[in-house]
Amino acid sequence: MEHARAPGLKALSLAFLLAFGAALMLGPVPLRPWALAEDPAAWPILWELRLPRALLAALIGAALALAGALLQALLRNPLADPALLGVSGGAALGAAAVLSLGAGALASGLAVVPVAGAAFLGALLAVALVLRLGQRGTQLDLSGVLLAGIAINTLCGAGVGLLMMLAGDGGLRSITFWLFGSLANAHWLSPLPLLITLPLVLLLTRSWGQALDQYQLGDREAAHHGLAVGRLQRMGLLVATLLTALAVAVAGIIGFLGLMVPQGLVRWFGPSHRHRLPQAALAGATLLLLADLLARLLLAPAELPVGMLTALLGGPFFLWLLRRQLSNGPEDGA
């Protein structure tokens, strides 16, 4: 057990590389790696469309899954999801505000930047509010945080609904599209923020495994072992928020990935958090690459919003998980 260093990281890396390759080669126009040199039309497709999109899918999948793994550990709740903290609600409200103003002019290209910026700001504001509301004295109350997150999400949802009613046809269309989450507008700028942030986060959290394990004992008993509980909570929530906000800002709301991936990893590799975060990053990247591939291929040449696809896969998974927990779990939860 202990001598199996970094369990699964090799297999997950291999799966990731395969998925990345498939995302580059497959699509409405299939490319053949061995014929790239002779095919002049292949390079623009690869360079301008597939590569930035695959990079974005990998980074967003990794960011959301890592954030989900962190939140499930920090909230000590296997059903926690990045959306719970109010991140997605706040981001949606921010994006909807800009989209309803600018209407159809913001369809693509660099015009995405103000939408992403507003979404990012909205996400940070919402989380700041949730954490503030979920505070008891100087400490975070975890159930308070969860409840505040639900309330803030609902409020933001109402705000988005109002904006959709007030927006014109073009605005309505772009808000709806954004809410489903999509990687269709990927260009070379979109992966940049996560390309810089994600390696830093992996570096910062590389030795958090033992701490996250001890943290499961509860605030008090974890502190008895010398763990700086408050610091881990603050840093972890900050990291999870940042990753989610950056992902949501570029690609809209892609649900359930942050819930599904950590859950699957628990089933495969056991309950320990050692190596959980890099595992989650690799598995999340792989899964979103594959989901986006499906989204592009299923109705080609039209494409599905990838967020709809992850929700379609994630919804039943979530319910299965819930039933499993309800029928197997200890009754008193202690």
Binding site: R76, Q210, G218, E221, H225, V266, P271, S272, P330
Partner: peptide, 21 residues
């Protein structure tokens, strides 16, 4: 050892003991 323990994570018994470092 406090009077109540809050742990609910599905560690094995040996993993719980190993949390002592």
């Amino acid at each position: 050892l406090p009077q109540r323990n809050a742990l609910a994570h599905p560690f094995s018994a040996a993993q719980v003991v190993a949390l002592a470092g």
